[in-house]
């Protein structure tokens, strides 16, 4: 129990991202509506980003923008949060919005063709046109 608690407190962020991710995944699998699926996908992706940002965190550090950059001095890496995951996640966010855009475009086309966004109805329509 003790062990579990320490685990919980030291890693609750990691756990939370998994919960979030699973929410997204669940939406993608179980929801029949295409836009709901996309929302699920977005949640899934954000959860991963949350995880990455969590990697970068450092106890007692400040944001990764140098404080008094004009002063020449030794920069201590302990003072600043790890910027690398942030960089990666910026890219990932951009990718996710691009994916969302393309997906929505496809959803529009699907709606044009089948006049519905529900997967089961679409399948029904394909089967008995």
């Amino acid at each position: 129990m003790e062990d579990f608690l320490t685990q919980l407190t030291s890693k609750y962020n990691f756990w939370a991202y998994i919960v979030l991710m699973m929410v997204g995944l669940y939406a993608m699998i179980a929801k029949g509506n295409l836009i709901k699926k996309l929302i699920g996908l977005s949640i899934f992706q954000t959860a991963i980003m949350l995880f990455y940002v969590a990697i970068g965190s450092k106890a007692g550090a400040t944001i990764p923008i140098l404080r008094d950059h004009t002063l020449k001095g030794v920069i201590d890496f302990v003072e600043y949060i790890n910027p690398l995951p942030h960089v990666l996640m910026l890219t990932a966010i951009v990718v996710s919005v691009a994916t969302l855009g393309v997906a929505l475009a496809l959803v529009l086309r699907v709606y044009d063709v089948h006049q519905t966004l529900e997967e089961d109805e679409i399948l029904e329509k394909i089967k008995n046109p």
């Binding site: 995944l25 996309l38 996908l41 995880f51 990697i55 496809l106 394909i126």
Partner: peptide, 29 residues
């Protein structure tokens, strides 16, 4: 016809796959 739907399907699966890869890279990182 059905091309957009198929592609959308691909998009969903593909994005999940890529995201999982990204997650794994995060683990390794």
């Amino acid at each position: 016809g059905r091309a957009p739907l198929a592609s959308l399907n691909y998009l969903c699966v593909g994005s999940v796959g890529a995201s999982l890869y990204l997650l794994g890279v995060g683990y390794l990182y």
